[in-house]
Design a protein around this nucleic acid. Sequence first.
DNA 1: TTCAAATGTAAAGTTTATTTTACATATTGA
DNA 2: TCAATATGTAAAATAAACTTTACATTTGAA
Lengths: 66, 66
Amino acid sequence: MKNNLKVLRAIKNISQEELAKQISVSRQTINAMEKGKYVPSTVLALKLAKYFEKAVEEIFDLEDSD
Amino acid sequence: MKNNLKVLRAIKNISQEELAKQISVSRQTINAMEKGKYVPSTVLALKLAKYFEKAVEEIFDLEDSD
DNA sequence: TTCAAATGTAAAGTTTATTTTACATATTGA
DNA sequence: TCAATATGTAAAATAAACTTTACATTTGAA
């Protein structure tokens, strides 16, 4: 699964740390997600979607391997 | 986090087992989700959304406790 | 009422998400 | 250039997702 977090974050011009704070996770969790190192929980995905005012599907995308 | 899976499944009139097969998880995973026992991964949420032709937000809902 | 299918649940085990700490590198502004 | 801030990464620990097996209960149709 891939995602646009890095771009969305750039548009809002906030750091990984700031985003982490906003949605109450560690900075490493944000970093790891952006680097595609793991798949977040649905709660996290919904929080990110809410924060960026996007649909979950606009941020996260299934891949053939999923 | 809550969800409508039971209702959506009733509309399509398929069993937990059938749904499990469709999205390649165990029946217990479907059952546990419906019973609110745990939060699925985003991959699973996206697969369910695709299967039911709904947005993730139409199936899953954040609660204050999230 | 009876039988089969569907659902609920539980325990044990495996895998994966997430945290914490810590450090190295990159970037940027003064 | 210097210092601060941002990012990448890694290891160890914990929590949570998910599987498998197994069994009990419910439901619905013949």
